[in-house]
Write a protein that binds this DNA or RNA. Structure first.
Lengths: 369, 369
DNA sequence: TTCTAATATTCAAACGTTTGAATGTCAAGG
DNA sequence: CCTTGACATTCAAACGTTTGAATATTAGAA
């Protein structure tokens, strides 16, 4: 009955079925202002008929006509990184009330995919773009192509306000400071550090922050106990880095009572490396992570970590694009905003006061037990 | 220059800029068969001009005209469940070569969101739907509304072939068998079990499988050591369930040397519960999970688990919808297919041979150390 | 010269909406 | 009997693309 060749019920179908024009039906079903002028009986009739036929407006036709896609593209560098998920959740939560749909794209830290998806962003006429950045993100094409088309961008994890791109950041330096302060407060003095990869924006400020606190407290960080992760291509490589570096730390033979890792996966790797070598966490050595992702909270011992308010960051990003879109509609020029959110220390079981004894001895003790 | 009020460069802009008609430009840029008839010089000219202006075809106009959205909706019950991510990855991998884009939707185990997104599926004219099912999934509206519009569906984690919906399943019974066999092979005889929630499709067959193997081996499963998770609303509740049940198991005072958990998060919860009570894993008690999600592999000790080939399942689902779409195009009626994939035992460090001594004693031993 | 057959390009309609302007109806006011 | 205006409905154009049919331009064959 009335099924057109497209297989989808259209306004025309509904119009024919109840004897009104397409215009009237459209006006009623889209609840346009004019619909106040439509007789109540007509409205009722049209609505029930639409319901009956299972009519759903065609978003493509609608968007074509109204030039609004109600879509925000979200370019995540790697969805399999537990870091991304809460952010995406926040974005979703921020977009939903405004009737926008996130178009989620997982670029898998691949330049090629990134470009493919970028093209799609343009083709699908996304009204805005949110980028969850990683080291692979080089600004080149993004700004050239997307901004040329006046699509507002918000970037998470990188400060691009200089290029007039709104940015959401966590205060990494403060995070680094919190981390080091916690360890020092517990009484640790000999601390190994696994720094983040050089190309990652977050790495440096965390390092700066923790150094600052260490210096203030008169704690010297032995450079032989400092390692730096290579560029990560997937979450597991952080884990493996942590694992290997922990073993290398032990191999130095230098005493240390705590490891401060770049992020939670690295910290979990460190825990594995230490445990495998018979060093107990936290009894013999404390480990501290960063981010507060799911694997850190369900591991045992629960990981003490510097929490990033990921969901909140996603929300901020969502609000950011929406604001920019609104501004563009009104013709207002919109100045890029910088949001810096504060990290928070979450104390769990992976850190403890250091025991006043030689690390090596304690390890041996356990091994013979 | 030539920027129209939409803010996007259109075919008309390109046409005007190089003096050809919209048709010619379209034919060249979309590489239609007719483009062979277009002079090489013209083609070149048009292409460079399009490039220069930053032209990108409007997917909406194109889809409207061609009635193809090149989009598959993916309804995931909860993206924050690490279980979903590899599946999504697989789907993405399967769709990409065919030029389809997954429209990822996180229903957050909420009926309301599920319905909202379902409406969007219809409105955005997704050509197919892949559902990653959870207990919240009740077939009612889905089949009524989506199938009415002849949109092919593939469901993961549930057998709906009876309703002519292609389904991808893991052989849960085989998984349950693998799990129990592993524990029995190690020498465990007193085994606690945490079953999955009743409404979840996977729960029962796993339970059947492990019972079968236990019965064959003459191992009796003490019902006082069997617990059942309530319906899960988020991944953490599985963890908490595991934690609490592990403590309850200990509280029974009954001896047991292994816990077989419904999934990895539950198993990780059990590890926490045991460890908190001074029971070491695996020295005093083995723990075995199911799924092989990221938190299970980065935890220490690494979780022995029954791996589901999640990525492969996603791939199968993607291939499933694509096949159905192709069939519909040719007018062929497409019979729903059932894909059952095999789980695999992954041995890590959370399981070991049981020690021949009283569990309680060993726990005390450690506590005094 | 005229016809055929390529080659090269354009016309115009269609996809399903939305919406400003136009049309038609009817009752009250002059 | 004609305005006026409120109400109810429809017309028709537009959004940016694709595509079957049409047209224009050539060159070779009859």
């Amino acid at each position: 009955m009335g099924q057109r060749r497209s297989g989808h019920v259209t306004l025309l179908d509904v119009a024919r079925a109840c004897g009104f024009s397409v215009s009237t039906v459209s006006i009623v079903l889209s609840e346009a202002p004019l619909s106040q002028n439509v007789a109540a009986s007509t409205r009722e009739q049209i609505r029930t008929m639409a319901q009956q036929l299972g009519y759903h407006p065609d978003a493509y036709a609608r968007s074509l006509r109204s030039r609004r896609s109600q879509t925000i593209a979200v370019l995540a560098y790697d969805l399999s990184d537990p870091f991304c998920i809460p952010i995406v959740r926040g974005i979703q939560a921020g977009l939903h009330p405004a009737g926008y749909l996130p178009l989620l794209m997982d670029t898998q830290t691949q330049r090629r995919l990134f470009d493919t998806y970028l093209k799609m962003v343009l083709e699908r006429r996304a009204e805005g773009v949110i980028v969850i950045a990683s080291w692979i993100f080089e600004e080149t094409n993004l700004l050239a192509d997307i901004e040329k088309n006046h699509v507002p961008i918000v970037i998470l994890g990188r400060d691009l306000t200089g290029r007039n791109v709104s940015s959401v950041l966590v205060d990494n330096e403060a995070g680094g400071m919190l981390a080091m302060r916690h360890l020092i407060d517990l009484g640790h003095r000999r601390i190994g550090v696994i720094r983040g990869p050089q190309e990652l924006f977050d790495s440096e400020p965390r390092w700066v922050g923790l150094q600052k606190v260490a210096a203030e407290a008169g704690v010297r960080i032995d450079p032989r106990l400092v390692f730096q992760l290579p560029n990560l291509v997937d979450p597991m490589s952080g884990f493996e880095g942590g694992l290997n570096f922990a073993k290398q730390m032990l191999a130095t033979g230098l005493p240390f009572t705590a490891v401060l890792a770049f992020d939670d996966l690295t910290a979990l790797g460190a825990v594995r490396g230490l445990t495998d070598s018979g060093v107990r966490v936290p009894a013999d050595c404390s480990v501290l992570g960063f981010d507060d992702v799911l694997p850190a909270v369900v591991a045992t011992p629960g990981m003490t970590t510097i929490r990033q308010p990921l969901k909140e960051m996603g929300l901020l990003a969502a609000e950011g694009v929406l604001k920019a879109i609104q501004a563009r509609e009104k013709g207002t020029r919109f100045a890029a905003e910088l949001h810096t959110v504060m990290p928070e220390l979450i104390v769990r079981m992976s850190t403890a006061r250091p025991v006043i004894r030689n690390r090596k001895r304690s390890a041996e003790t356990r091994e013979e037990g």
